[in-house]
């Protein structure tokens, strides 16, 4: 969606036309959902937050001021909403559990395991590593942002990320 297309959709929303929101939804649902899933780490919660995100866009569109970077604007709102959700539901941040039982040892130094699906590879990570990878890869967050949002030192974040990458390499991923 180009900037002018986006602005046209926003103008429709301002007139109360739901078609404007639907255009934005169709263009960005996968982008926004991926970011949100990366932060909240759970499909069910990601669906809730993504729905709330589009409802919010509907209500805040009146205040939207064009600065030529609507994608970044959308991503920032989505990320902040997901982080708010995390803060409010701190005790229940279950990382998606997978049924596949992949028996891999924890040490990343061992020999490379053959080709694996993404989910199989992800199941080799522990919950903390998975959370950092999700926030980094799907949530497009910097290490600093992850560190601040999780309240842990940046060194710990990079350490977990490094470990996760080593494990993923063993599963045939770069």
């Amino acid at each position: 969606m180009t900037q002018s297309e986006f602005e046209a959709s926003v103008a429709k929303i301002k007139r109360g036309d739901k078609e404007g929101l639907k255009e934005i939804y169709e263009a960005y649902i996968s982008y926004i959902y991926t970011i949100v899933l990366g932060v909240v780490g759970n499909r069910e919660n990601a669906e809730d937050v993504t729905s709330e995100f589009f409802i919010k866009i509907w209500t805040v569109a009146d205040a939207y001021q064009s600065n030529g970077a609507h994608k970044a604007w959308l991503a920032t709102i989505a990320r902040n909403m997901a982080l708010d959700f995390l803060r409010k539901n701190k005790r229940e941040i279950p990382t998606e559990e997978f049924e596949e039982d992949v028996s891999l040892s924890e040490t990343p130094e061992e020999e490379v395991v053959g080709e694996m699906s993404v989910q199989e590879a992800l199941s080799t990570l522990n919950e903390a590593e998975r959370q950092v990878v999700d926030m980094k890869v799907l949530g497009e967050m910097s290490f600093k942002e992850i560190s601040e949002s999780l309240g842990i030192p940046m060194g710990t974040v990079t350490w977990r990320y490094q470990n996760a990458i080593k494990k993923l390499r063993r599963c045939g991923y770069e």
């Binding site: 639907k22 649902i29 996968s30 991926t34 669906e47 589009f54 989910q119 590879a121 890869v137």
Partner: peptide
């Protein structure tokens, strides 16, 4: 052969995007 994890992961997530429009509307 090694695959790009980031691309593969994003692609997989995008394959499973839920349809939320009715709920939102």
């Amino acid at each position: 052969m090694s695959k790009n994890f980031e691309d593969a992961y994003k692609a997989e997530v995008q394959q499973n995007i839920p349809d939320l429009w009715n709920r939102i509307e």
